[in-house]
Design a protein around this nucleic acid. Structure first.
Lengths: 130, 130
DNA sequence: TATATTGTATTAGTATTATAGTACAAAGGT
DNA sequence: ACCTTTGTACTATAATACTAATACAATATA
């Protein structure tokens, strides 16, 4: 369960703020595998935006296999390990690691520095149901 | 020294492709600290775009303290460690690591998995002059 | 100090994106 | 079966982003 909030300043589109909050919710363990998200209508009313704005966020995450949505029943956090094959997982982890190292090196950090910081970081998804 | 290329398909804006290529050039060691980049005019001619498109890329990287530009002389790869204070560096590494872990966890990877993959990755910026 | 070379600023046109309004369609519950 | 609840599709509009044309300003150098 996550409390969604929208910041109209800052120029970040509403639908992207929702995407980011869902991603962070999963990463932090506040959203668990199988958990149902608010319906597009209820969240739209709560956040005072159009339901298509919510639907757009959900849809992008569904394309990424992060959410699982069925018309009539609702939208749920996907059991991500199931839908990605081993090959896809291997490719994905390589992609995100390469991207991350590129950014890190660009800022002048070494591999050792970022690994140390990662080990020190206490963001933890241990509430996740996997 | 880096050979720039633009891919008009794929929908990635030209200025962003240039940004990405500079970032990757630094990360891979092909662009060294202090090295001069092509002038906005010469690169614009070479890539058949307007000089403002190049200038936009350079400017974004200058805001990030990745490039250093002076009217009249040109644009150079910045000695990044010099312009960021220790506090700024510490904040930056925390930011990028938190962002990275969020993405990794969202895809179902553990901290141990991504650290192992990072150690296995051979992207290396050891040609960098720092 | 003139001139060439460098990045910057202003403006405008086009394309894309973000958001909303409204109608549609699928699934579930009664 | 019906009706409610759910997401989806289509359309329109406003805002934003991208690129370009052109003029300006700062620096280097002959």
């Amino acid at each position: 369960m996550v409390k969604f909030i929208l910041d109209p300043s800052g120029g970040i589109p509403f639908y992207r703020q929702i995407i980011d909050q869902i991603k962070f919710g999963i990463a932090s363990g506040n959203l668990k595998t199988g958990e149902q998200l608010p319906t597009v209508r209820s969240l739209a009313v709560e956040l005072k935006v159009n339901l298509n704005t919510i639907a757009k966020a959900y849809k992008e995450l569904e394309i990424l296999s992060i959410l699982d949505t069925q018309q009539g029943s609702g939208t749920f956090i996907n059991a991500n390990g199931i839908v990605l094959s081993d090959e896809e997982k291997q490719g994905k982890i390589q992609d995100i690691c390469k991207e991350f190292l590129t950014v890190a090196y660009t800022y002048g950090f070494s591999k050792e520095e970022v690994i140390a910081e990662l080990q020190n970081n206490n963001l933890n998804n241990n509430l996740n149901n996997k």
